[in-house]
């Protein structure tokens, strides 16, 4: 176990290094000339003095390996450069915005758990009945319907019928958890619908697979109550593949947050990223991507460690 943890932590360092490298090449090397992109290529006429100034400011006039070395060195020290427009350190800017995104994601995850488990289990236990068809209809509908569309319809309905509008200010989970939970309840619910549908579908098929397996037949044959068979023998085993979805759920939720924040005016990383893209603030965009990448790597680390405890079949080699 200890060896596994040590290996996993070493792997974490490699992971972070690869992520930072990948983003450096994706954002600063492959597109050609970032300075040109930032000055805007529409006009076609770019002031050469301004251009040189920007290249110097971004450090783009130096050799590639120097740039790369400095980027990695600074990134590992937690310095992701300065926002081109506001001049503030990127990390500082993100620190302010991150709690909102995290709040929304956590509430979204809460809803996913609340919705997906009953829908998946009830759907599997009532296989090929009207209940099952209805719940499967829910699953395929919300896998396809974009969250921002549902959000727009709900908001428009609330605005017309109840004169209810999205808030202008939001609390964070740190400052005021109860209020934050209330405020994020609606956006989090809509955000979670897609992942709920996905998880419910997975849970349904994994339940059905296990209900048809030999050990469940044995459990029934030895006269166990149906409730024991379902709750003790089937559900425990059916949850493992769904637990594995947790990592991709977090990713899906963060993807969704970026869009959902815009509908609900939540001042999180998503809205920051969109305004950074519109301002062509490449250092800020890259910084946000690194930040989110780190969050995902952290979540995956926690999940891997959790698995090692939950599922003793995992070997540590």
């Amino acid at each position: 176990m200890q060896r596994y943890l040590i290996r996993r932590l070493l792997w974490l360092i490699v992971n972070i290094w690869m992520m930072v490298t990948l983003l450096f090449f994706l954002m600063y090397v492959i597109p050609g000339d970032v300075a040109m992109v930032m000055l805007g290529e529409e006009g076609g006429t770019i002031d050469p003095v301004q251009y040189e100034l920007l290249r110097e400011r971004l450090g783009l006039n130096r050799p590639l390996h120097v740039q790369y070395g400095e980027w990695i060195w600074n990134a590992l020290q937690g310095d992701l450069g300065r926002s081109y427009w506001t001049g503030a350190p990127v990390v500082q800017e993100m620190g302010i915005r991150f709690p909102y995104t995290m709040g929304l994601t956590v509430v979204g995850m809460f809803w996913v758990t609340i919705i997906a488990i009953p829908v998946g289990v009830i759907s599997a236990l009532n296989r090929e009945t009207l209940i099952d068809y209805g719940l499967r209809g829910f699953q395929i509908t919300f896998l396809a319907a974009p969250g921002f569309w549902i959000a727009i319809l709900v908001l428009s309905f609330l605005a017309v019928n109840f004169r209810w509008h999205p808030r202008i200010e939001y609390a964070t989970l740190w400052s005021d958890p109860v209020t934050a939970f209330q405020q994020y309840a609606l956006p989090g619910f809509i955000l979670g619908l897609h992942s709920s549908a996905n998880n419910a579908r997975m849970l349904r098929s994994s339940m059905l697979e296990i209900l048809g397996s030999d050990f469940v037949r044995t459990a029934r044959a030895k006269g166990l109550k149906e409730r024991t068979v379902v709750y003790v023998h089937t559900m425990r085993n059916a949850f493992l593949p769904v637990l594995e979805l947790f990592g991709s759920d977090v990713q899906m939720l963060i993807s969704g947050t970026i869009v959902m924040e815009m509908v609900f005016n939540i001042p999180g990383l998503g809205t920051l990223m969109i305004s950074a893209v519109n301002a062509r603030d490449i250092p800020l965009v890259t910084g946000i991507a690194v930040y989110i990448g780190l969050v995902i790597i952290g979540v995956n680390l926690l999940l891997d460690i959790l698995y090692a405890f939950v599922d003793p079949r995992i070997h540590y080699d």
Partner: peptide, 8 residues
């Protein structure tokens, strides 16, 4: 690559 949320 896969560690990033698609939209990001």
């Amino acid at each position: 690559f896969q560690a990033f949320p698609n939209m990001v």
